[in-house]
Amino acid sequence: MTDKKQPSEAAIWLGLADNTFTRQKTVKFGDASAVNSGRFYSILIVCGLIALWVLSSRLGLVKEFYWPTIGSTFDRIGLLVTEGFRNVSLWEHIGISVYRVISGVVYGAIVGIPLGFAMGLSSTARGFFDPIVEFMRPIPPLALIPLIILWFGIDETAKIFLLFLASLFIMTIAARSGVSSVRISKVHAAYSLGASKMQILRHVILPNALPEIFTGLRTSMGVCWGTVVAAELVAADKGIGSMIMIAKNFLQTDTVVIGIIIIGVIGYAIEIFMRFLERWLIPWKGKG
């Protein structure tokens, strides 16, 4: 039997040829491990979209009102970076949004984690808080904005309180489920090794719940980032969401598009950062 021609490294990297592992398989349809990255097509679609944008800008196919030209977008980015937007620098707009998210998540965790632990460990605490948590859980944070404006006005407290609520229930539920997921043989082993209740809480239940608490933190970060932008659209004079809203009022479509791109990039960066933290801090996740 003659050897088949080996595909090049480049073709494998681009996902155009089977690698040595998938080449051995006789059936590939239905086998998820035989589906490769298809990088070639990813590159194709990104380049294609950029090319389309360049082309439409050159030929003036779309009115600037609907979609900015590539040239004016880059000009605007330069302007935003050097002069800011409405007397506030771009970094300040981004910074204030990120600051609000982190504050909300931190406050939510500080209250939510002990609350979730109490609910997972005590019948009294579970009975007491369960109706509130289960009632609040399905309510989208945005629906609370009108009430929060009535209570706190539109200053910084209002926004951080909204984000606190958004993360509070996620963190509570994550901590509660982390506590309930502890395997009884681990708890029994700790008792047989002479541990007290407090030691079991500190040395068994807490570390056991950390992976789920961290998943809760990641989800909260994502939800709060979405919520902060939306909240700023409604009522704020700083922040990336308010920048988009004000720019819309001045028909600055390019600023709107840039704002959207920034929101996407930062949301993605938060997710990557949290995954990195998770791998670093909780390497035992899923290994129990």
């Binding site: 395997r183 043989s185 681990k186 029994h188 082993a189 700790a190 008792y191 047989s192 090794l193 002479g194 541990a195 040395h203 068994v204 570390p207 056991n208 950390l210 909780i282 035992w284 290994k287 129990g288």
Partner: peptide, 26 residues
């Protein structure tokens, strides 16, 4: 339960957040 009666379970009763030494020293 008490520490004068030690237990060995089938599996999954080790503390996966600790090293081998830390488990033994628990």
């Amino acid at each position: 339960p008490g520490s004068e009666r030690g237990m060995v379970f089938q599996q999954g009763a080790l503390f996966e957040w600790l090293t081998v030494e830390q488990n033994v020293a628990f």
